[in-house]
Simulated scan of single mutants.
Amino acid sequence: MTTTARLSDLTVGQSARVVAVDATGDAGVRAMEMGLIPGTEVTLVAVAPLGDPLVFELRGYRLSLRKAEAAGVEVSVS
């Protein structure tokens, strides 16, 4: 069963596929420029001690995003 969620809702070790990115603001455009485009597989690999930022692995590299930025990315979780 596949459900949709926000990138900020993933737990460490969980993988998902990007469905859509809210690119209305600068953060959304930057996220897309860094590889968060629909169809991309993303895994949450770490969370900072206070819960922000989040570290994701995608396309062979690691990307840190603030929780608010990650909330602008819709993902499909299976």
Rank of each mutant, 00 (worst) to 15 (best):
M1G: 15
M1P: 08
M1C: 02
M1H: 10
T3Y: 01
T3Q: 07
T3R: 09
A5I: 00
R6V: 02
R6S: 13
L7D: 03
S8D: 07
D9N: 05
D9A: 08
L10F: 00
T11M: 08
T11R: 13
V12T: 14
V12I: 15
G13N: 06
G13W: 05
Q14R: 04
A16R: 00
R17I: 12
R17M: 07
R17T: 15
R17G: 02
V18A: 08
V18W: 07
V18N: 06
V19T: 11
V19K: 14
V19D: 11
A20L: 11
A20D: 12
A20Q: 13
A20H: 10
D22T: 05
D22F: 02
D22N: 15
A23S: 14
A23G: 08
A23Q: 11
T24Y: 06
D26Y: 07
D26E: 10
D26F: 04
A27T: 12
A27S: 14
A27P: 00
G28D: 08
V29K: 08
R30F: 01
R30E: 12
R30C: 01
A31Q: 05
A31G: 06
A31M: 11
M32R: 15
E33G: 12
E33D: 10
E33Y: 03
M34H: 14
M34A: 13
M34T: 08
M34W: 06
G35S: 13
G35N: 14
G35H: 09
L36P: 04
L36C: 09
I37F: 07
P38T: 09
G39H: 06
T40D: 07
E41D: 10
E41W: 03
V42Y: 01
T43W: 00
T43C: 02
T43F: 00
T43P: 00
L44F: 01
V45E: 04
V45K: 06
A46Y: 04
A46H: 08
V47T: 14
V47Q: 10
A48M: 08
P49Y: 04
P49G: 14
P49F: 10
L50K: 13
L50E: 11
G51F: 00
D52M: 02
P53N: 07
P53C: 08
P53E: 06
L54F: 04
L54K: 03
L54E: 02
V55N: 03
V55A: 10
F56I: 08
F56W: 02
F56V: 02
E57Q: 14
E57A: 13
L58N: 06
L58K: 01
R59S: 15
R59K: 15
G60L: 13
G60I: 12
G60P: 11
G60W: 14
G60C: 13
Y61T: 15
Y61I: 14
Y61V: 15
Y61W: 15
R62Y: 09
R62C: 11
R62A: 13
R62E: 15
L63M: 09
L63H: 08
L63D: 01
S64R: 11
S64I: 03
S64T: 10
S64V: 05
K67A: 03
A68E: 05
E69C: 07
A70F: 04
A70S: 07
A71M: 02
G72E: 11
V73C: 12
V73D: 10
E74K: 09
E74G: 03
V75K: 04
V75A: 05
V75C: 07
S76Q: 14
S78M: 09
